[in-house]
Computed example of a mutant assay.
Amino acid sequence: MSLSSLDTAALAHDLRLSVMRFSRRLRNQRVSTAVTLTHLAALSTLKRHGPMSPGELAGHERVQPPSMTRVVVALESLGLVTRTPHPTDGRQVVIELTPAADELLAAEARAREAWLTGHLEELSPEERAVLREAAVIMDKLASG
């Protein structure tokens, strides 16, 4: 392995750990402890893709349908989703966000943004410029 390959492997290792730590810290900036990260992921998927069946939601979240059924029951009991009959398949229901879910998702996003903004303000202008460039590079890596 060349020195360049070793440097690249070390960078991959360091970057992976840093991204994991950063992601964990960002996820922990929470508004509601009544809603789990699994619940938030399901709500976010519904926000992004619109109403869908529990099976479709399970597919998007890469979990088994019985697991998603439990998540949907919990979210419904919290008033965050509604279940309505499927328009063409009487055996199915359609899961949809409530206005309370929209408000919760917005509050969660604001909490994370506020935390991150506060920490970014502690950095020097040069450090923020480096991060601005790194964000572009990380988007490139994520789409590749």
Rank of each mutant, 00 (worst) to 15 (best):
E133F: 08
T45C: 11
L17S: 11
A41R: 14
T45D: 12
E113R: 13
L97N: 03
H60T: 05
D102W: 01
R30E: 11
A107F: 03
E103P: 00
R21T: 14
T117W: 01
A12K: 11
A109F: 04
E122D: 09
V81M: 03
R25Q: 10
A34R: 14
L40Y: 11
P65H: 09
L3T: 14
T82G: 03
A42G: 01
K47N: 12
Q29F: 00
R25T: 03
L105A: 06
I95F: 02
K47C: 05
V19Y: 06
M1S: 15
D7P: 00
A114E: 13
L11W: 14
S67G: 12
S44L: 08
D14L: 13
A74C: 03
T45R: 13
A9R: 10
R110Q: 13
H86M: 10
G118F: 08
L131M: 14
S18T: 07
R21K: 09
L105M: 09
L15T: 12
R83D: 00
M138K: 02
R21G: 07
S23Y: 04
G79Y: 02
S77F: 00
L43D: 03
H119M: 11
H86E: 08
A42K: 02
I95T: 11
I95C: 12
E126H: 11
R70W: 02
T45F: 06
S4M: 10
L116G: 01
M68H: 06
L104K: 01
D139I: 07
T38G: 10
S67V: 15
S143L: 08
T38Q: 13
G118Q: 08
E56T: 11
S67L: 11
W115F: 15
V72Y: 01
H86N: 10
T82S: 08
E103Y: 01
F22E: 05
M52S: 14
T117I: 05
V73F: 04
D139E: 12
N28P: 00
T8E: 15
E96R: 12
T82A: 03
S2K: 09
L6V: 10
S143P: 00
Q92D: 07
S23R: 11
G59E: 03
D7N: 13
M20I: 13
S4C: 01
P125L: 07
M138I: 15
G50V: 02
L141H: 06
R25C: 02
R128P: 05
L75N: 04
S4I: 12
A135L: 15
R25G: 00
H13N: 07
T117A: 12
V31P: 03
I137L: 15
V93Y: 01
V93H: 06
R83V: 02
T82D: 11
V130H: 12
S23T: 14
E113G: 04
F22P: 00
K47F: 08
E108P: 05
L57F: 08
G90V: 06
L40S: 06
E121P: 00
S124P: 03
S77Q: 14
S143F: 02
G90N: 05
S53I: 06
S4Q: 13
E113L: 15
L6I: 10
L105H: 05
A41S: 13
L80N: 05
H60F: 15
E127T: 12
A106Y: 04
E121L: 15
H49L: 14
L15Q: 04
L17D: 11
G144P: 01
D102S: 09
V63F: 06
K47E: 15
T36W: 02
V31H: 04
V93I: 09
D139Y: 09
L57T: 10
A74H: 08
